[in-house]
């Protein structure tokens, strides 16, 4: 076997029909999720959350509080899963790592000059290495959208491949920031680049730009993952982030994953929600299923 890897021509990525993909995404929302299906889905969604704090005002105390919540979502409800991960800036990784030790909750760190990514490659590499050395299990990088929109796909590809190398054993999530890409065709092209360059996950958004994750955009990315799987048999994970704040919408995302990629993706190794406020709505719905009544939001902790 030759080791020379030939790259596909990314300008030949499949095209997306906008009207049809929006319509198709809305069809998943017509599924009616009830009873056991609902409880299973709510718990699964809870277990797929990357609890996130990415603010200039983040402090060790704030991060510690969030880490506790990630492990104790709602202790009065028996046998609830933990969050999948906590997602923080590199400077907070070592604190988070200590807080979630032994719980199975992963520590994810944004890097590569998140959220804009407007820094030299050397800075981005250092940023990533610092996070990994501090104990990050996962790295959430941003692509250089300026270069991408400029048509410099090789630069974007090389940058992702370089960061992947800097990640070592940490899993790499590549944020496309779909809200800045403009068309579904470009989302698909960026997804293909990220996947080929070695992304373990592709992720919609930083959460700093609107629109963030939408179902049609996520569907475009799931199709890119599916095509890659068809061609190579290799799985890539998906993380919609931002804008998913209620349980009903989260369940519809799960329906979409289930029907586009199938059962193998229905776990937090391959699917995540980048969301923080989602957790309490899932908990509220779980309590509603258990007790038959809605409780006030004051009964669910805010961390």
């Amino acid at each position: 076997m030759s080791k020379i890897k030939t790259l596909p021509d990314f300008t030949k990525s499949p095209t997306i029909d906008q009207t049809s993909i929006i319509e198709k995404a809305s069809r998943f929302q017509k599924r009616s999720i009830k009873k056991e299906t609902k409880i299973f889905g709510l718990k699964l969604a809870l277990n797929m959350i990357d609890l996130t704090t990415l603010e200039g005002k983040d402090t060790p105390s704030k991060v510690k509080q969030m880490c506790y919540k990630a492990q104790h979502m709602h202790d009065s409800y028996p046998d609830l899963p933990t969050a999948a991960a906590v997602c923080v800036y590199p400077s907070m990784v070592s604190i988070a790592k200590k807080e979630v030790k032994g719980s199975g909750v992963k520590v994810a760190s944004v890097s590569t000059a998140f959220p804009a990514g407007q820094a030299p490659l050397s800075v981005k590499i250092d940023d990533t290495k610092f996070a990994v050395d501090s104990g990050a299990d996962e790295i959430d990088m941003v692509i250089s959208r300026g270069k991408f929109l400029n048509g410099d796909y090789n630069y974007v590809y090389d940058e992702i491949a370089t960061i992947k190398e800097a990640c070592g054993k940490a899993r790499l999530k590549v944020i496309l920031e779909t809200g800045e890409l403009g068309t579904f065709d470009k989302v698909r092209r960026a997804s293909d680049i990220a996947i080929h360059a070695g992304a373990d996950f592709i992720k919609t958004s930083t959460g700093k730009i609107s629109p963030a994750a939408t179902m049609p955009v996520t569907l475009v990315m799931l199709e890119a993952i599916k095509d890659h799987f068809y061609k190579t048999g290799k799985m890539v994970g998906m993380k919609p982030a931002g804008g998913i704040s209620n349980a009903k919408l989260a369940l519809h995302y799960l329906v979409m994953v289930n029907e586009v990629l199938g059962a193998d993706w229905m776990n937090n190794t391959w699917f995540r929600f980048g969301a923080s406020s989602l957790a309490n709505d899932l908990l509220m719905q779980l309590e509603k299923q258990r007790t038959g009544i809605y409780q006030s939001s004051d009964y669910f902790s805010i961390d």
Binding site: R31, T37, F40, Y230, N258, E259, G262, D264, M266
Partner: peptide, 11 residues
């Protein structure tokens, strides 16, 4: 590849 009806998540 397993899809839909083969999934553990039946509606």
């Amino acid at each position: 590849l397993k899809l839909g009806v083969d999934s553990k998540w039946q509606y």
